[in-house]
Design a protein around this nucleic acid. Structure first.
Lengths: 204, 204
DNA sequence: CGTCTATTTGAATGTACTCAAAAGCGGTGG
DNA sequence: CCACCGCTTTTGAGTACATTCAAATAGACG
C-alpha cells in the first residue's frame, strides 16, 4: 500500500504532458512554467493502488501524466458504480469533495502503473493567484467537463443502452483498452450480465 | 412568436442579479461593470416562448434575470426529455452547441415571463479579453456546474427513484414550484405515470 | 361552464435485474 | 510449459421494475 514515491517534479524531464496540455489553451513563458511546476508534486502509484478512499477527505486534484485511473462509488449494499475514468493527459478528482474539502463520494484506483501530478486545494488557489492566466485554462477545462457530463445525462435519459455502449467505445477508445466490461457496464448504469446479452444481440 | 423585445441594458435599473452574482466571486469596479454591461443584450420573452429550437445553431449564453426556463431534448420517436432547468440568477444554454456554434441538441422554453441577458460566443470571448478577471468568475461557474452534473450522474446510476425525487425537491425548491410533475419525471428519466405511483408508495 | 392538460389508477407487456452455473482468460507457481 | 486458481464473461430461468396503453379524476385557464 505504501510503495508509492512522492517527490518534487524534476525540472527538465517530466511534466511534458501537463505543460503541453496547458499550452494548448494559454501561453506560458518559461518563468511561469517554472512557477507552475513548483506547485505540483508527482507521485508514482503501481497498478491497482487505491489512492483515494470514499469517505476520506479529498484533498487533491490529479493530472494523469502516465497510466489510467478509475473512480467509483460504493453504495450501502456494497454495489460499485463507476463514475469516471481518466487516461493520460486528463485531470481527475471528486471535484465536489475537493472544492469543499469534504469526504469523497468516490474511491479512485489505478488501472495501470501511474504517474500522477497532484495539487491540493489551497496550493491551487495560490497558483491561480500567482499565475492568473491559468484561470482561463481551468475555465476551459471545466467548461468542457461540464459539456461532457451534460451529454452523459442526455444520453442516459434519452438513448438506448446499445447506442450508449457504441458511443462509449467511440469516444473513449483509450479507456476501452484498459478496463473490463464489468466496469463499462457499471459506468453505463447496467449489470455486466445485461451488457453482455445486449452486445450479443447487436447487429454488427 | 415574435412578441419579444430586444434592447440594450438600461444602464442603471436592470442587471441587478447578474452583477451581484458576478461580485460574489470577483471584484468589479464601476468601470468594469459598465464595460460588462455593454456586452449583454436583454430580451423579454413571455411565458411558454421557445427561444431556442433543437436543430438550430445555438448562438447565445443566457442569464436568467427574471423568470424560469426549461431545456429539453426531443428524440426520434418524439419523446421529450428534460435536460436542465434554470431559475432567476442562473446561467443556461446548450453549452456544447454554444462552444462549437453547432446545432442545439435541446430546445429551451420559458416557464414564466422571462427577462434574459444574452451574449453570443464571439462577444463573450471579447468580453473575457477586455475584462480578464471574468475568467475566474466563469471558471468557478463551470466548476460548480460540472460538480452538479457529476452528482447527477452518480445519483442516476446508484440511487433509487424515490431518493432522487426527494433530492430534487430539496435541491431545487424554486424549480419545483414552477414545473409540472411530468417535467420532473422526464428530468429524472422516468414516465410521469411511474413517478406518480412511486410518490403514492412513499412513506411520509 | 367547458375544454385542455396533468395526474392518478390499473392491467398487460417488456425491459433489466438477480441468482446460478458454465465457459473463457490471464496470471502464478510448481 | 502446464495446471490450477480467481475473475470476467456468457447463458439461462425466474423475478422485479418500469413502461405502454387506456380510462377515470382532478386542476388550470379561458
Amino acid at each position: 500500500m505504501n510503495d508509492n514515491i512522492t517527490k518534487n517534479l524534476p525540472s527538465s524531464s517530466s511534466g511534458a504532458l501537463l505543460f503541453s496540455n496547458i499550452r494548448k489553451h494559454v501561453d506560458l513563458n518559461a518563468h511561469e512554467a517554472e512557477l507552475v511546476q513548483g506547485f505540483f508534486k508527482t507521485t508514482y502509484y503501481p497498478k491497482k493502488s487505491v489512492f483515494l478512499h470514499q469517505g476520506n477527505k479529498c484533498r487533491k486534484f490529479y493530472f494523469v501524466e502516465q497510466g489510467s485511473v478509475r473512480g467509483f462509488h460504493t453504495n450501502l449494499e456494497g454495489k460499485e458504480s463507476t463514475i469516471m475514468f481518466a487516461v493520460e493527459d486528463w485531470w481527475i478528482t471528486d471535484m465536489g469533495a475537493f472544492l469543499n474539502e469534504q469526504p469523497a463520494n468516490i474511491s479512485m484506483e489505478t488501472l495501470d502503473d501511474c504517474l500522477l501530478f497532484e495539487i491540493d486545494s489551497s496550493t491551487m488557489q495560490k497558483m491561480l493567484e500567482v499565475v492568473p492566466k491559468l484561470e482561463k485554462y481551468y475555465r476551459i477545462l471545466f467548461q468542457r467537463a461540464y459539456v461532457r457530463e451534460q451529454q452523459r445525462a442526455l444520453d442516459a435519459i434519452s438513448s438506448t443502452l446499445e447506442k450508449r455502449y457504441l458511443g462509449f467505445l467511440e469516444k473513449y477508445p483509450k479507456i476501452v483498452k484498459k478496463v473490463t466490461q464489468k466496469q463499462i457496464a457499471s459506468y453505463l448504469g447496467v449489470t455486466p450480465e445485461f451488457l453482455s446479452t445486449v452486445k450479443n444481440r447487436m447487429p454488427s
